[in-house]
Computed example of a mutant assay.
Amino acid sequence: MTITQLQYVLAVAEHQNFTKAAQKVFVTQPTLSMQIQKLEDELQVQIFDRRKKPIQLTETGRKIVVQARNIVNESDRIQDIVDQQKGFIGGAFRLGIIPTVMPTLLPMFLNNFIKKYPKVKLKIEELNTEAIIERLKEGHLDAAIAATPLELEGIKEQVLYYEPFVAYIPKGHRLDSEEKLDVESLDLDDMLLLEDGHCFKDGIINLCKASKNSDADRFQLESGSFETLIKLADEGLGMTLLPYLHTLDINEAGKKNLKMFKEPVPAREVSLIYNKSELKMQIIEALRTSISGVIKGAIAFQNVKIISPLSPKKNTNEKAGL
Rank of each mutant, 00 (worst) to 15 (best):
M1C: 02
I3H: 06
T4V: 12
Q7A: 05
Q7K: 15
A11V: 01
T19N: 14
T19M: 11
Q23T: 09
Q23G: 13
V25A: 01
V27A: 06
T31K: 13
L32E: 08
S33F: 05
Q35R: 14
Q37L: 06
E40G: 00
V45Y: 04
Q46W: 11
F48C: 11
K52Q: 14
P54M: 10
I55K: 08
Q56D: 07
E59N: 03
E59G: 02
G61C: 07
K63Y: 00
V66L: 12
V66M: 06
V66D: 10
Q67C: 08
Q67T: 12
R69V: 02
I71K: 04
V72C: 02
D76L: 15
R77F: 11
I78S: 09
Q79W: 00
Q79D: 00
I81R: 09
I81Q: 13
V82P: 02
V82F: 08
Q84D: 14
G87A: 14
G91I: 07
M108A: 15
L110Y: 11
N111P: 04
N111L: 13
N112Q: 15
F113N: 09
F113V: 06
I114M: 09
K115R: 12
K116A: 15
L122R: 06
I124L: 06
L127Q: 05
I132A: 08
I132R: 09
I133G: 01
R135W: 00
L136K: 10
E138C: 01
L141W: 04
I145N: 09
I145C: 06
A146W: 01
T148I: 07
L152H: 09
V159C: 01
V159Y: 00
L160A: 09
Y161F: 15
Y162G: 05
A167Y: 05
Y168T: 07
D176T: 10
D176N: 12
E178I: 12
L181G: 12
L181H: 12
S185W: 12
L194K: 08
F200N: 03
G203R: 01
I204E: 06
C208R: 07
K209V: 13
A210T: 14
S211A: 15
A216K: 07
R218T: 11
R218A: 07
Q220I: 08
L221W: 13
L232T: 07
A233E: 09
G238Q: 10
G238V: 03
T240E: 13
L245V: 03
H246T: 06
E252Y: 02
A253P: 00
G254P: 03
N257T: 15
F261I: 13
E263C: 04
V265R: 08
R268V: 15
Y274D: 04
K280Q: 14
M281Y: 04
Q282H: 05
I284Y: 03
L287G: 06
S290F: 04
S290A: 14
A300W: 00
F301S: 13
N303V: 00
S308G: 11
P309Y: 03
K313Q: 14
K314V: 12
N315P: 10
N317I: 10
A320Q: 12
A320I: 14
G321H: 06
G321Y: 05
L322C: 07
